[in-house]
Design a protein around this nucleic acid. Structure first.
Lengths: 187, 187
DNA sequence: ATAATATCTAATCAATTGCTTAGTTATAGG
DNA sequence: CCTATAACTAAGCAATTGATTAGATATTAT
């Protein structure tokens, strides 16, 4: 009996995600979302409940994309630790937008909202971080069997990755390349 | 003939700075600033012109504090590269607030405002980054005389420092320690 | 075709944003 | 002790924020 939605949720969320990615959470207004998603505020609120609801779905959308483009590729690689290095390079191009770099949406979010980050959002982010972390550990095992060494190495890699995310916004590509090369020289 | 200001600009700016540091630029409203600085909006605007004006002065205040607590200490140290490692540890405690970590105000700002960062603000930030960078280079010279090596090393250190800033918001102290130790193990 | 109902448009809500203005108060030089 | 002048208080500005409402429109089972 009812009328059909004349938009696909996955499609409009993807558009919202890119907007949040470029601008951050606070700077992105519901009017901007309206325009970018191509739907009315009513539709937005009836589908996703709130601005935060749209953001949470955007985070999930980002995670899916990063999973496919970065994590799955890493998992499927047979190059061991070198695959992690490739992950770092892939991450930089993944977050590149024209001649700008948007960093990682998840890192941006933590950095913007800090400890005030909503628990639901924080959980989504932490879950993905753990996911990446475990994938790194799998590859590190091919290098060294020592658990303590691996633990230290993966902590090192996770922080390095955050550094890459922020630095890509302010540093030259050559500096990022220097960094990545240095990171894996030490591994 | 005129009336005297009954507040000291440096004092209220310091309070504003801590507020911006904790909350970020956008999330900090003029009403919050009013309350925290203990002065009226009129006084704020007549002294600093705009919210952005208050922020720019806050950035300068932050830079002064970081200069004294971190950079000057680094410069005065005779421990060579080890002094840079100390800088990393000092930075973490410098940005710690109770059991929370606020990261670096400058890094936070770049990360929040991205390429839309006002030129004046961006210049202030970049000037300080260059300042830190040069201080690192001085210490690196005590290790190796090769200019290319130093260039690569300092790029590595700068990105690592950004990583530390963001990661301090989401990771445990032990993970940060692992990271710092790993960075300087082979420098 | 009709009735039921979810989705649409578009106007509007109170609250908050950065900023300004009108009017009062304090402090100095003459 | 005045008078000039800047700093104060507090009310208010238009614009924007996230969110809601009322009424028109479309779709499907009967």
């Amino acid at each position: 009996m009812p009328r059909k939605k004349n938009f696909i949720e996955e499609e409009v969320i993807e558009k919202a995600m890119y907007l949040f990615w470029r601008n951050g959470y606070e700077t992105t207004s519901v009017r901007m979302l309206e325009k970018e998603m191509g739907i009315n505020q009513f539709s937005m609120y009836s589908s996703f409940g709130s601005k935060e609801g749209v953001f949470i779905e955007s985070i999930k959308c980002y995670k899916k994309k990063a999973q496919v483009a970065l994590v799955d590729k890493l998992k499927n690689s047979s190059k061991g630790v070198l695959a992690i290095k490739q992950y770092f390079y892939d991450f930089v191009s993944f977050s590149k937008d024209l001649n700008q770099n948007k960093g990682c949406l998840l890192t941006n979010t933590i950095n913007e909202l800090g400890e005030n980050t909503d628990t639901k959002i924080r959980n989504e982010i932490m879950k993905f971080a753990l996911n990446v972390r475990n994938s790194f550990i799998e590859k590190l095992k091919t290098n060294s069997p020592d658990e303590q060494t691996i633990e230290k190495q993966v902590n090192y890699l996770m922080v390095s990755l955050q550094g890459l995310s922020v630095s890509s916004k302010m540093f030259e590509q050559s500096q990022l390349d220097d960094f990545i090369e240095s990171v894996f020289e030490r591994l």
